[in-house]
Amino acid sequence: MSRPDAKVVTKWTRNVPGWRPRVTPVNLQEASEAQLEALQVTPSNTKVSDYVLVLAHDVETLKVRSPLFNGIMYDAGGLSRAERELGAIGASMVNHCIYCAAVHASRHAQIEKSEEVTDKIFAAGAKAELSLRDSAIFAFALKLSKAPSEAGPEDMAALKEAGLDEAEILDLILSTALFGWANRLMHVLGDPVRTGDGG
């Protein structure tokens, strides 16, 4: 739970901030049967984040969203985990979701065991000098995330030149598009915050 004196984080970071909701989260004590089921609250598992408690206001969507999210980011085959994270990071930067970018940049660095790519992306955005493959993936994610999408045939050609097959391109579209969704919840319904002690 974030403190009221927490400062809003405005710069890209891999150090995942707290999240302060702009609407009141569902109170677990007053939650409906359907909400408790969607939240998977059991007597032994009562820890639910403010973010998920906010989303519990729309319980029917929350119930389908979680398995869909996990499927797109983690299902076997197709695009690598790190490259799906790159799609998520691209969307989050276009939509300025500092929180989402932090979570997924830190995951990218963890998977790759390197902070090089996300350091470059946070410093230079669309102008970051990346490998041919990462550069095609990141550029596509940035353009698909615009409203309306600005991705065009030249971006698709770059993905293919970089060696992505149809299944990998589909996974990139899915992970990037998914963050068009996640960003519009996280960035719209709350603030990324940091308390004085770094928490």
Binding site: H57, W181, R184, L189
Partner: peptide, 20 residues
């Protein structure tokens, strides 16, 4: 407010999936 955000957010996803 959450329902409005979810509707909007889902459409952002579906529209980009279709465009892609």
């Amino acid at each position: 407010i959450v329902r409005l955000a979810e509707l909007n957010a889902f459409l952002a996803y579906q529209i980009r999936l279709i465009a892609g």
